[in-house]
Each structure stands twice: as structure tokens, then as C-alpha cells.
Design a protein around this nucleic acid. Structure first.
Length: 712
DNA sequence: GCAAGGTC
């Protein structure tokens, strides 16, 4: 009389086993673990999946359009995910032919489907007849026990909407991607890897819109009038930005040579609450801001810290720290480290964390477990400490900021300035990444006359909208409901891989823009959030039994067929344009022999990149590229060809190996570092070229090439 | 080769 509990992941299987059967034994199967409990009359196996174990694949890979799909074990389709096989094997050998099954995966659409596929494809169809569903919203002992004692029926509406989500994403994404690639292949006989999808395409579209807004933007000159007083006080004219030059003259005329009368001095106390505890997006944004880490890197570091047991589950959207995580125990553990102890000792009791608004049914906000790491890599340590300090600061209580707002009257014109200083540090004491304001308040009294040293009109230009970076794009995607907390960083890196975007401050390449322009013409829906919205509605209807998954999929198939038809009918034009845009982004310089474009090319034979002339085969100029080489924007002083950087440590050389080694190892000095006074040099990183301090890593000052140009 | 979603 056996009973099997199927869990979504190893971690939840441990929690479920311990909650239901404290005496259950942890057992090993190959490289994976499961739990076994031998009761008086029955034996229970608690066994995990690792997220999805099955994925969709076309039944017949030679179909032109993929509509006929089937579920296949992920390790068979994706060789990088062979570890999943261990979990499938474990379930296959331990969890078949039981009398009773519990489906105990997360209670959401994906979780329901994960468990359903395990039962259907590994345990066997008949297992589904013997299955009950555990429904819990948190992985706490109470919830788990309740869910086990009062199981419900498996909700097939949920299962079907999960299946439909996978099918719709596949048939839209894969078929449209293939059709784009086919149009390039058939019109130019070249292969470029292209893709479109429900999430990646709208994300790219956001970036293209911004790119167009920046291009369209015309800077306008404006003036700001400032009064310079004693003690370095600079007051701004109340009019703010002035766009008319004669207005500037007028204001200057009224104020020049006059003293200032203090019209109003207001001192306020502002309360500043601690920053919200981290969810994944919050952690990614802060690690980007403080350390310059890419969201993808932060995510993988957080995953490692979690697997080592140092922090809680990172793929959460929650900003809540429920009592049940055990504040005192965690803080006690952290206190073993003197640097954390110093912060913790200053906390006031009773402990009550400040929380953010966002919630997650399955997990609390990211927090340390209290187990102190022994050895960590450099960035792992930074991210870990960031999480620890953020957690401690949630208990730090509010900070009070004293703010002084002063109004001055100079010949009838109003000028303002403000000062801030921290009156009570509160949580700022615990969070070392926070800047603590401490400005001096001048002793001004209302009605007092103050001398004015100078009135100036400062000329400025309006600025174009800012470019997105990875962290701000993730936030924007979050706001628009594109992707999930665990997939956003990966989706952005697909956009980089496809060469749709480049740079740390994201620029869209000609190819990226062309993809969006093309899809806007033939499949507007996939470029906007429209498709996601439609999916959400249809899936909800399936869940409620108001429609069937087959109907929804059938409708989607018809839609896709008509989109693909349109693309096929125009494939000559689409393919040529896409390829041209692709090449435009690959131009690295001018051919010294024939004046054509030098392009980055890829040789399928040697599986390596090289630089060749666009007039091939008439012009046969080629330059080799060392493995991992990057082509820089800087040009060789001797011959004008671009420089490349390659090797480890990175060194620079001319693209033409015969040109000479004059540039090798030489750093181009472009100025002085404003932070440490050392030389500023051109460097290159994985996002391209930038300006960095020669004193790296001691001094970590960096700037973009544009910034330096702008400031001279 | 192509998507997006789960997780070690």
C-alpha cells in the first residue's frame, strides 16, 4: 500500500517531507534525493521534479509549419540539461504503481502542468485516476499539513490552460522565427539566426520606440538663472527653464546689483522608510546600481547562494518578510560576523520589519538564512552582503530627514534653494549603500537682507529620453507584465545574442529595428503586449471551462497560417531587407583595396568569424579574427583599420596582423580620472568600449565614450 | 536553428 507525493523541486520536497513525516528518511537515487516514510500500514515516497521535465517538440521535424506537437523529456531535446534525466529516472524507478498519488507542485498554472506531465508521462495515465491535488499557498508546516489532510481534485481547467500556454508560445514563436529565417535564406542564400516571440518581441519593441524617440529628439537651448550667495549657496530662479532669450535679459535686468531679501524659511521633518525587502527584480536593480552587475549575473549568483543555503529562494516577487521565517534566529546567525553584529546590535526591539507592497504566493522576500558563508567569490560576497544589509535595514525603523526650503526675493524675482540633513539615521545606519545627506543649514531669518555675489544665466540643452539599461528594462517589463521574474534577464540576453541590441546603455542595431518594422507590417500583434493580453484572457477562459484548449489553439493556428502566408508572399523584400540591416550592423570599416565595406563574416567550415570585404568574390581581402576577439571603434593610427582586442589579459592590436605591433599593449590616454587623478584610458568590456581609470581595480571609475565627448 | 517557462 504505497503512496507517492510529487513535488515541483528538491527544496519543496524536503519541506513537504519534513512537515508531513518528521521521521521520514532522506534517501539517494543516483545523484538525486527523495524521502521515504514507513508508517504502520503504508509507505510514503516524497519525490521531486526539477521544474519542467517535459517540453514540446514537433512530431515531424520536416514539417514546414509546426502545429503537430508532442511532449518529450527535456534532456532528450536539450543536451545542456542532461541533469534532468536523473530526476526522471528516479521517479521512473521509485514512483510507479502506487495506490495513491498526491500532486504537490506549486499551486499555479505552470506548477499544475509540471506535476501533471510527471504523472502522465512517467507514472502512467492510470496514475492520474488515483491522484489528488494538495493546495497550499505557503510552504509552511501548517499549510502543508492542511493541504495533505484536505486534498482536492486535480483541476483540468488549470492543466489545459497550462498546455495551451506552452503550445501557443511555441507555434507563434517558432513558426514566425522560422519564416523570417527562411525569407533571408531563400532570397540571399545566407543564414542568420533570427527569432520572434510573445515576450522578446514586445521587449525589443520598447527599445526600438525609445531609439526612435532619441533619434527624433531635437535639443532645444534653455537657460536657468542662478543667484550665487556667500558660503557657496546657489539659489535657482523660480521660473525654472527659460526658453526665450529676451525673458532671460528681462530677469537679469531686474535682479542685477540687488540684494536678496529672505522671504521664507521653512524647516520640515521628512520621514523616509527603509527600502523594501528584495524580490528578484529589486535585487537585480540594486546590484546593477551599486556594483554594475548584469541582472543575469546577479540571478545566477543568487541561485548559487541559495543552493549553498546562505539565502532564501531568490525567484520570488515578494517584498514581505513574514514572522515565520524566524527573525531572531537569522539575526543571531548573522551576528557571528562582527560587521553584521555591529549593525544588528543597534536594532530596537520588538523586531518589526518594514515591508513592500508586492506579494508572492509561494515565497517570502529574499533574505539571508543566518548561515554564514565560509568562502565566496568576490561578486558572490558583494551580492550576499547586499542581501544581508538590506534584510537588517528592514528592521532599522524610519529615518528622519530635516529639510530647509528657502525663498529669496531679489528685486521682485523669487529664487529658491534647499538643504537636507539626516536628523535620525534609523535604517540608514544598517544600510551602507545609502548616501547620508549632511548639508549645512545657513542661518537665515525671514526679512533678513543677504548680499548677492553674482547672478548668472546658465545655458543648457534639453536632453533626449534616456536609454534603457538591463535593469531598467527589467523593471519596465515587470510593469507591463512581460515575462516572469525568472525569465526576464534571459530574454534580454537573447536580444543581445541575436545582435538586435548592443551596449550597456542599450542601443538597437539596424537588424533589431528592421525586425520590429517587418513584424509591425505583417504581425503587429506580436510586437505589442497585445498577444500577452490575449493569451491571458483565453487561458482564463480555459481555466473556467468557458472554452476549450483545442478551440483556442485551432484559432491561433489559423491566425499564424495567415501571418506566415503574408511573410511568404513578400519574402524577397523581407529577406533582402533583413539581411541588409544585419550587414549594416556588421560593418567594421572600409576595405583598403576596393573601398567596399569590411564585414564580420562567419565561416561554417571552420566555425569561426573573420573579417571580409562586401565585394567578395571580386575583392578577396580577408583578415583573421583570433577566438573571442572584439572589434573596437578605435582605428589604427598607422593604417586606419579598426583595432581589435583579444586574448587574456585583453590586448589591442590592428585588425591587419601585418600592419605591425605598434598598437599592441598601448593604452590610449583620454584624460584624468575625476576620482583619483590617475590617467583615464579606453578599455573594452563585454558591452563594447568605455572609458575607465588606469588605476583599476583600485579605482573603479568608468564613463561611456559619449559622456566623455559631451563633457570634453 | 526557432519560444517561454520551470529549476539544479
Amino acid at each position: 500500500m504505497d503512496e507517492v507525493i510529487i513535488c515541483e523541486k528538491p527544496r519543496s520536497s524536503e519541506k513537504i517531507a519534513k512537515a508531513l513525516f518528521p521521521k521520514a528518511k532522506k534517501k539517494k537515487y543516483k545523484k538525486t534525493y527523495y524521502w521515504e516514510y514507513q508508517g504502520e500500514d503504508k509507505r510514503t515516497i516524497i519525490i521531486p521534479a526539477v521544474g519542467h521535465l517535459y517540453t514540446l517538440k514537433p512530431k515531424n521535424p520536416s514539417d514546414e509549419l509546426f502545429f503537430d506537437l508532442e511532449w518529450a523529456p527535456i534532456p532528450e531535446v536539450d543536451k545542456k540539461k542532461r541533469y534532468i534525466k536523473n530526476y526522471i529516472d528516479a521517479i521512473d524507478s521509485l514512483a510507479k504503481n502506487a495506490d495513491k498519488y498526491f500532486h504537490a507542485c506549486d499551486y499555479d498554472i505552470e506548477g499544475t502542468l509540471i506535476g501533471y506531465n510527471v504523472l502522465k508521462h512517467i507514472c502512467g495515465e492510470e496514475a492520474l485516476q488515483k491522484t489528488l491535488r494538495m493546495k497550499f499557498s505557503t510552504l509552511t508546516k501548517n499549510d502543508i499539513i492542511k493541504a495533505y489532510e484536505n486534498p482536492i481534485e486535480l483541476d483540468y481547467g488549470q492543466v489545459d490552460s497550462g498546455i495551451a500556454r506552452h503550445v501557443l508560445d511555441f507555434i507563434f514563436g517558432v513558426n514566425i522565427s522560422r519564416s523570417l529565417m527562411r525569407s533571408v535564406k531563400e532570397s540571399t542564400n545566407r543564414f542568420i539566426k533570427l527569432s520572434a516571440g510573445r515576450v522578446q518581441t514586445p521587449a525589443l519593441s520598447i527599445l526600438v520606440d525609445r531609439e526612435k524617440a532619441i533619434r527624433k529628439f531635437k535639443p532645444e537651448p534653455y537657460w536657468v538663472i542662478k543667484a550665487i550667495l556667500e558660503d557657496g549657496i546657489i539659489a535657482l530662479n523660480q521660473r525654472g527653464r527659460i526658453f526665450q532669450e529676451n525673458e532671460v535679459e528681462g530677469v537679469l535686468g531686474t535682479c542685477k546689483g540687488k540684494d536678496a531679501i529672505v522671504e521664507e524659511v521653512k524647516i520640515n521633518m521628512i520621514t523616509r522608510m527603509p527600502p523594501a525587502p528584495f524580490n528578484l527584480g529589486g535585487l537585480q536593480a540594486e546590484a546593477y546600481k551599486v556594483f554594475g552587475l548584469s541582472p543575469k549575473r546577479t540571478q545566477s549568483i543568487a541561485q548559487n547562494l541559495y543552493l549553498e543555503g546562505y539565502i532564501s529562494y531568490p525567484r520570488t516577487s515578494s517584498q514581505k518578510l513574514p514572522k515565520t521565517i524566524g527573525y531572531e534566529k537569522i539575526l543571531k546567525g548573522l551576528s557571528e560576523d562582527p560587521r553584521f553584529h555591529e549593525k544588528i546590535a543597534k536594532l530596537e526591539r520588538p523586531l518589526k520589519p518594514y515591508e513592500g507592497e508586492k506579494e508572492d504566493e509561494a515565497h517570502p522576500a529574499i533574505h539571508p538564512t543566518g548561515l554564514l558563508p565560509e568562502k565566496l567569490g568576490k561578486y558572490e560576497r558583494k551580492v550576499y552582503e547586499l542581501i544581508v544589509y538590506r534584510f537588517i535595514s528592514a528592521f532599522g525603523g524610519k529615518a528622519l530627514i530635516e529639510s530647509m526650503n528657502t525663498k529669496l526675493n531679489i528685486g521682485g524675482e523669487i529664487f529658491k534653494f534647499s538643504r537636507k540633513r539626516v536628523a535620525k539615521k534609523g535604517w540608514m545606519e544598517q544600510y551602507p549603500y545609502q548616501k547620508i545627506e549632511d548639508e549645512k543649514f545657513p542661518e537665515f531669518e525671514e526679512g533678513e537682507k543677504v548680499p548677492v555675489k553674482e547672478i548668472i544665466a546658465e545655458e543648457n540643452e534639453t536632453k533626449p529620453p534616456a536609454r534603457y539599461n538591463e535593469a531598467s528594462l527589467i523593471k519596465e517589463m515587470e510593469k507591463r507584465g512581460l515575462g516572469t521574474k525568472s525569465t526576464r534577464a534571459d530574454i534580454i540576453s537573447i536580444l543581445y545574442d541575436r545582435k538586435y541590441i548592443e551596449g550597456k546603455k542599450i542601443r538597437v542595431t539596424p537588424l533589431g529595428e528592421n525586425i520590429i518594422d517587418t513584424l509591425k507590417r505583417y504581425c503587429e500583434k506580436i510586437t505589442s503586449e497585445e498577444l500577452t493580453r490575449q493569451f491571458e484572457e483565453e487561458l482564463k477562459k480555459i481555466m473556467k471551462g468557458k472554452t476549450s484548449k483545442d478551440k483556442v489553439i485551432k484559432k491561433a493556428e489559423e491566425e499564424i497560417i495567415s501571418i506566415i502566408e503574408e511573410i511568404e508572399n513578400n519574402k524577397e523584400e523581407i529577406g533582402k531587407h533583413l539581411y541588409k540591416a544585419y550587414q549594416k550592423g556588421r560593418i567594421v570599416g572600409e576595405c583598403p583595396e576596393c573601398g567596399g565595406n569590411l564585414l564580420i563574416r562567419y565561416s561554417g567550415k571552420t566555425k569561426s568569424s573573420f573579417v571580409g570585404c562586401s565585394s567578395f568574390p571580386e575583392c578577396r581581402i580577408v583578415y583573421p579574427l583570433p577566438k573571442g576577439a572584439r572589434i573596437l571603434k578605435s582605428k589604427c593610427e598607422k593604417c586606419g583599420l579598426p583595432l581589435i582586442s583579444y586574448g587574456r589579459p585583453r590586448q589591442r592590436a590592428c585588425l591587419d596582423p601585418k600592419c605591425g605591433k605598434g598598437e599592441k599593449g598601448k593604452m590610449e590616454v583620454v584624460g584624468k580620472c575625476p576620482e583619483c587623478g590617475n590617467d583615464l584610458v579606453k578599455r573594452s568590456g563585454r558591452y563594447g568600449e568605455f572609458i575607465g581609470c588606469k588605476g583599476f581595480p583600485k579605482c573603479r571609475f568608468t564613463a561611456s565614450l559619449e559622456e566623455v565627448k559631451g563633457k570634453g
